[in-house]
Amino acid sequence: MQYKLVINGKTLKGETTTKAVDAETAEKAFKQYANDNGVDGVWTYDDATKTFTVTE
């Protein structure tokens, strides 16, 4: 399945996608991506759209 990440950071904004077997695996990949880019915020997930959002 394909999952999307929407980033609403202080210095980084945008979107990225990943393919993963489940939401938990996608979340780990997205959190690593956010961490690598210095984004630390509040996470939400919408199962209907398979979209994670992180807001600083």
Rank of each mutant, 00 (worst) to 15 (best):
Met1Ile: 14
Met1Asn: 13
Met1Leu: 12
Met1Lys: 08
Met1Thr: 12
Gln2Val: 13
Gln2Glu: 14
Gln2Tyr: 10
Gln2Asn: 10
Gln2Lys: 08
Gln2Ser: 12
Gln2Arg: 08
Gln2Ile: 15
Tyr3Asn: 00
Tyr3Trp: 07
Lys4Thr: 15
Lys4Glu: 03
Lys4Ser: 08
Leu5Asn: 01
Leu5Gln: 00
Leu5Phe: 05
Val6Ala: 03
Val6His: 06
Ile7Lys: 01
Asn8Ala: 09
Asn8Phe: 14
Asn8Asp: 12
Gly9Arg: 04
Lys10Thr: 14
Lys10Pro: 11
Lys10Cys: 07
Lys10Gln: 15
Lys10Phe: 13
Thr11Asp: 15
Thr11Ala: 10
Leu12His: 10
Leu12Met: 12
Leu12Phe: 14
Lys13Thr: 14
Lys13Ala: 08
Gly14Arg: 12
Gly14Glu: 15
Gly14Ala: 14
Gly14Thr: 15
Glu15His: 07
Glu15Ile: 06
Glu15Gly: 05
Thr16Trp: 15
Thr16Met: 15
Thr16Pro: 03
Thr16Arg: 14
Thr17His: 11
Thr17Leu: 09
Thr17Asn: 07
Thr17Trp: 15
Thr18Ile: 15
Thr18Gln: 07
Thr18Met: 10
Thr18Pro: 02
Lys19His: 12
Lys19Tyr: 15
Lys19Gly: 07
Lys19Val: 14
Ala20Asp: 03
Ala20Thr: 05
Ala20Ile: 03
Ala20Arg: 03
Val21Glu: 11
Val21His: 12
Val21Lys: 13
Val21Leu: 12
Val21Pro: 14
Asp22Gln: 04
Asp22Met: 04
Asp22Asn: 12
Asp22Lys: 04
Ala23Met: 14
Ala23Trp: 13
Ala23Cys: 09
Ala23Thr: 11
Glu24Phe: 14
Thr25Ile: 07
Thr25Arg: 07
Ala26Trp: 01
Ala26Lys: 00
Ala26Leu: 01
Ala26Cys: 02
Ala26Gly: 02
Glu27Ser: 09
Glu27Thr: 04
Lys28Arg: 14
Lys28Cys: 05
Lys28Pro: 02
Ala29Asp: 11
Ala29Asn: 13
Phe30Tyr: 02
Phe30Arg: 00
Lys31Thr: 05
Lys31Arg: 15
Gln32Lys: 14
Gln32Cys: 05
Gln32Gly: 05
Gln32Thr: 12
Tyr33Gln: 03
Tyr33Ile: 08
Ala34Thr: 10
Ala34His: 02
Asn35Pro: 01
Asn35Glu: 13
Asn35Trp: 14
Asn35Ala: 14
Asp36Gly: 06
Asp36Ile: 10
Asp36Glu: 14
Asn37Gly: 05
Asn37Leu: 13
Gly38Ile: 04
Gly38Glu: 09
Gly38Val: 04
Val39Ser: 03
Val39Gly: 02
Val39Tyr: 06
Asp40Arg: 13
Asp40Trp: 12
Asp40Lys: 13
Gly41Ala: 02
Gly41Asp: 01
Val42Asn: 08
Val42Lys: 09
Val42Leu: 08
Val42Pro: 04
Trp43Phe: 05
Trp43Asp: 00
Trp43Asn: 00
Thr44Phe: 11
Thr44Val: 11
Thr44Gln: 08
Thr44Arg: 07
Tyr45Gly: 00
Tyr45Pro: 00
Asp46Arg: 03
Asp46Leu: 04
Asp47Asn: 11
Asp47Val: 09
Asp47His: 12
Asp47Pro: 14
Ala48Met: 11
Ala48Gly: 12
Ala48His: 09
Thr49Pro: 02
Thr49Met: 06
Thr49Trp: 04
Thr49Ser: 09
Thr49Phe: 05
Lys50Trp: 06
Lys50Thr: 04
Thr51Val: 08
Thr51Trp: 02
Thr51Lys: 03
Phe52Cys: 01
Phe52Arg: 00
Phe52Lys: 00
Thr53Cys: 05
Thr53Lys: 04
Thr53Asn: 05
Val54Pro: 00
Val54Thr: 03
Thr55Asn: 08
Thr55Asp: 07
Thr55Glu: 09
Thr55Ile: 08
Thr55Met: 05
Thr55Gly: 03
Thr55Ser: 07
Glu56Phe: 06
Glu56Ser: 05
Glu56Leu: 06
